[in-house]
Write a protein that binds this DNA or RNA. Structure first.
Lengths: 340, 340
DNA sequence: CTGAAAGCGCTTACAG
DNA sequence: CTGAAAGCGCTTACAG
């Protein structure tokens, strides 16, 4: 039960209450091993902390040690992106907390590179994760000058640009591999990959394509082709219209459920039977897969593997074990088989 | 261009560089009016700040003034409430920044009430937004003892519980009103509201119902009925099976696009023609509305109005103009007419 | 109008 | 094993 007094409860109040010095309280709080504190002193301090409702002031601690326990994640593309990242980030948050860090998500579409760097640096976060390419050299230098570790998150790397900071690459290949494996198991041999046009999606699509190619190579007689599809119902209709009985895929892996759904609509309009004539797999396992007729088979990224790909690299960078270079831990994928 | 030295650039370094005292630099930084600083001193200080690449240390400032500039938003994992407001939060973030605050989102499903309160309080945030009911009395007291303003976010209020803190109520009524108005304009008179079973969604549904009733009352001869629909294809099939030519709605407002899509699938399976025999409107304007056949008409919340409902109340609470009670600024809605 | 100084709440060598 | 003390980088009354 917190104290009712208007006086904020400080570490020295706890020390006074427990009859020890502030140093002792601090040692108990931070579990310092060097100076072994006897069990009964420790218990007395813990009891005083509880009795007074003491909550350490993170600002004071951060000022003293020169940086905060914050790990700031910049969510580029605005908070709506949260939908996709949410489940993974939640686990990252839990695991970082166990290591003493607090993950916070920041999103502000109106914040530009240099100004954003100043804004974040002011908090002296332990680490700052942002999209590769968001920080220019000067902004990166500013973040580093403030003592923070900047970590880039990318879906692919520009081979012409040197890697100048720790970079976590997200690897979606398993999604494509799983999807195409499923189509092959269903008997498809002429498999088409749909590539989205949205710039932000293209890099992800490239990775999924890599996985798809891996799966195709593993079985004799499987051929892979690709088609680009803007996210637009008319474009989907055009793609489908270009197919005829002689020349068409018998299985399609669309980049995501949205594109798959668009295609499914166009296929239905055109009278194709799915999956009898054409198999179709999307990705993301969106809620609407159950609503479509036929119900859309989908794939998704394993949330655990997302957390795995981030936590260790982040902690490594903070603790100085990783100063630069690329960390690429392939994500795992799941299949969600339905009717298509 | 930031300085290359390993010495962190502090306010006193800026003062030295500009040939003034630290107080003067601080006054320039914070735009203190009381002591009018001559333009040329001010310019010299600004120039030094730029030359040295100075970034203020927010931890030091926060320690000194007793609280930080953080506004922490707790994103409660399972609840759709803040997820739906995501686009709005981005705007809230921008507007709070203009007022000198930094919005940060925290999400960690493994963090329970009292522990969460301690975790957040340690940062001494200016304000903490969380779901009404997440903080029990002791946790709330702890947040307040640490000097932070706790603000509850709710979709409805338990009339039995007294309102003990500033509470922002999100009002979805306009969504229901807009949807039903559209159905009425299309000629529907026997309108059914679909109510979701998921506990987190029910309160939102109740508000949308309120708006729907308002729209129904505005036109003579419109009758409103309700049906509950678990999020499950079989349940949708059952609901639709219970309708026959004599006794059925001619217009349906489903709680959201997910439920509408489920219903549309069941209607299609059963051979009903939409919208000729039954009009159908969902909500959220999800991407898959374009994919369904027929294309699903939807409604959505106006993002600007979400920001309006939050920013002023948050600033008011921080600045002490609002100590308790309820703020309820109705959101506006938009119609996205398609085929249904 | 500007400066010297106290103090916010911690951590951590250093002495005892 | 424990305590006294310095100092992190700011803000802000107070004096000049």
């Amino acid at each position: 039960v917190p104290k009712k007094s208007s006086q904020p409860v400080t570490l020295s109040a706890v020390a006074r209450h427990a009859g020890v010095s502030v140093a002792t309280v601090s040692y108990v709080l931070n579990g310092v091993q060097e100076s072994r504190i006897p069990e009964n002193t420790r218990a007395r301090v813990q009891e005083s902390i509880r009795a007074l409702g003491y909550v350490p002031n993170a600002n004071a601690r951060s000022l003293r040690v020169g940086r905060s326990d914050l790990v700031v994640v910049h969510l580029l593309g605005g908070l709506p992106m949260l939908q996709r990242a949410a489940a993974g980030l939640d686990q990252v948050s839990t695991q970082l907390r166990a290591a003493g860090f607090t993950l916070m998500i920041h999103s502000d579409a109106s914040l530009r590179g240099a100004e954003a760097a100043r804004h974040w640096s002011a908090l002296r976060p332990a680490a700052l994760l942002t999209d590769a390419g968001f920080l220019d050299a000067a902004s990166l230098a500013q973040v580093q000058a403030a003592g923070s570790i900047a970590i880039a998150v990318a879906h692919d790397l520009d081979p012409k640009k040197p890697v100048t900071m720790p970079t976590i690459v997200f690897d979606h290949a398993a999604v494509g591999e799983t999807a195409v494996q499923h189509l092959i198991e269903r008997g498809c041999r002429e498999i088409m990959l749909i590539e989205p046009q949205h710039p932000g999606a293209r890099v992800i699509a490239r990775q999924r394509k890599r996985g798809a190619q891996r799966a195709a190579r593993a079985t004799k007689g499987v051929r892979l082709s690709t088609a680009e599809l803007p996210f637009d119902p008319r474009a989907a209709a055009e793609v489908v219209a270009s197919w005829n009985k002689g020349s068409r895929p018998d299985g399609v892996f669309a980049f995501d459920d949205d594109h798959a759904g668009l295609l499914l609509g166009a296929l239905t309009d055109r009278g194709w039977r799915v999956p009898q004539q054409i198999g179709l797999v999307g990705s993301d396992n969106s809620s609407f897969c159950e609503m479509l007729r036929p119900r859309l088979t989908s794939t998704s990224i394993d949330v655990e593997s997302v957390a795995e790909s981030m936590v260790e690299p982040i902690l490594g960078a903070i603790e100085g074990r990783w100063r630069e270079g690329v960390s690429e831990r392939p994500w795992r994928a799941r299949l969600h088989p339905r009717e298509t």
